[in-house]
Nucleic acid binder design. Structure first.
Lengths: 190, 190
DNA sequence: CAGATCATGTAAATTGTTACATGATTCT
DNA sequence: AGAATCATGTAACAATTTACATGATCTG
């Protein structure tokens, strides 16, 4: 359902797009929220077309189809936004690693945290760059779709960095408490 | 893969558990990170047993099996933690609603934000309660699995609330700019 | 003894990933 | 001409959800 809504939302904004365009759009604008490969997008478009949520506006060479959202499709997005209570679970590998962190020795856990921070910094840079690219769009009459989500994503990435830093400190403190010979040296043995 | 790791992690901590126990454990401790129904857990346990990641420690009435993690299974969790680079995408309905928010009229968007905040407060209470229940465990010799992830979850929920509040303010400001007759009244028409 | 909870599974459908497959157009 | 990119699809597999199905045990 959510992929369908995401695609409808993108079509709502852009007016019309081909499957390829949408795949690119997903990659450029919502991959951090809801990613999908073209192999999932093309069949989904066929289904949405059958359901009347989108229509074929034009056809180009070698089966290229330009889709546009229908009234019904637009209503569907709106209704979903207004009525659907999103579920809170995040299903994130990141959080799962955070969860299992205490199974590792302190020095190993610190290594994992450092990798997380490094990956996250790259990710944050990507989001900030995306924000820079987004701004010109707002000057046009287009709906600034994605603006608030991007803000949320950036805040989230900054939070992850803070959390990783604080957690590293806490792990060091705990390790020092167990082997109080100064620092986490007890952990460095293995 | 991740469900497998999650289950192995829970078994790593608790020593041994039945499928039912694990389903309860998932519900009580990692449902906010990686949820799974019993219909997914039971077959996964069978597969892990075939692979030698877990063994059957005891059998009770009506097919009840108590599983324990094997050396191999423990190594698998550790290796995953040490080597696996988690992917950053969140695939969250929440963020998708944030993304599509600009498609709504300002007053509708404010309604959605308010619902988000209300749901999130309930969720935050749930996490804080979970943290309270977790604390006694730490007094025992058990690994404080989930401790850091819970901290992360709570920080995340607080961030969502802040974001929703700030976004509501921004939406009001933007609406006022379009119809500058004092406040977001232009949005209240529909 | 009725209702809650314990306890375990299977089946069908949906969703998502990876790999396979093909060919056109554009740029250098 | 060769490489990059445009462009669209299918197939096989894996993960997840929802629904179906059954029966034991415990509590009031």
């Amino acid at each position: 359902m959510s992929l369908r809504i995401a695609l409808l939302g993108l079509l709502y904004r852009s007016g019309s797009a081909s499957g390829y365009d949408l795949a690119r759009s997903v990659e450029r604008s919502i991959t951090h929220i809801w990613s999908a490969r073209h192999s999932q997008i093309y069949p989904e478009l066929v289904k949405m077309h059958q359901d009347g949520a989108i229509r074929i506006e034009a056809e180009g060479p070698r089966g290229r189809k330009i889709y546009a959202i229908t009234e019904q499709g637009a209503a569907e997005v709106r209704d979903w936004l207004l009525d659907h209570r999103p579920n809170m679970s995040m299903r994130s590998e990141w959080a799962l690693q955070a969860f299992l962190l205490p199974l590792l020795e302190p020095d190993e856990a610190l290594g994992v945290l450092e990798r997380m921070r490094s990956m996250n910094r790259t990710y944050l840079d990507f989001l900030v760059e995306m924000e820079r690219n987004l701004r010109p769009t707002f000057l046009a009459r287009e709906k600034p779709i994605g603006k608030y989500a991007l803000d949320l994503g950036i805040r989230h990435a900054r939070l992850l960095d803070e959390w990783a830093a604080d957690t590293a400190v806490e792990i060091c403190r705990d390790a020092a408490r167990v082997s109080p010979d100064g620092g986490a040296s007890g952990a460095r043995e293995r």
